[in-house]
């Protein structure tokens, strides 16, 4: 029963991070700057990782973390390129 409580708690923390993070990424402060919006988007992705953890999907969690680190490079490249061209 105790481990069940832990699983439910992890899932609820995941929900909380997802909803708060999405609201923060959409309406939050300083979202006009793309880089700050990208940093805000990391919060709901942490929530997704917690939900994978609660559902015991190890492979999905590992792949998500690895893919996220590659995606960060791609987005940062697009943002830098855009800034360079618009300046």
């Amino acid at each position: 029963m105790n481990t069940m409580n832990l699983v439910v708690l992890t899932t609820y923390i995941g929900y909380f991070l997802l909803i708060i993070g999405v609201i923060g990424a959409i309406f939050g402060p300083m979202t006009n700057d793309p880089l700050k919006r990208l940093l805000n988007i990391e919060v709901p992705s942490m929530g997704v990782a917690l939900i994978f953890l609660a559902y015991n999907e190890t492979l999905a969690l590992m792949t998500y973390i690895a893919v996220n680190s590659v995606l960060m490079l791609v987005f940062v490249r697009a943002i830098i390129k855009n800034e360079e061209l618009e300046a």
Binding site: V22, I41, F75
Partner: peptide, 8 residues
């Protein structure tokens, strides 16, 4: 950037 959220 926001389409990443849809993927989430």
């Amino acid at each position: 950037l926001l389409s990443d959220l849809v993927e989430c």
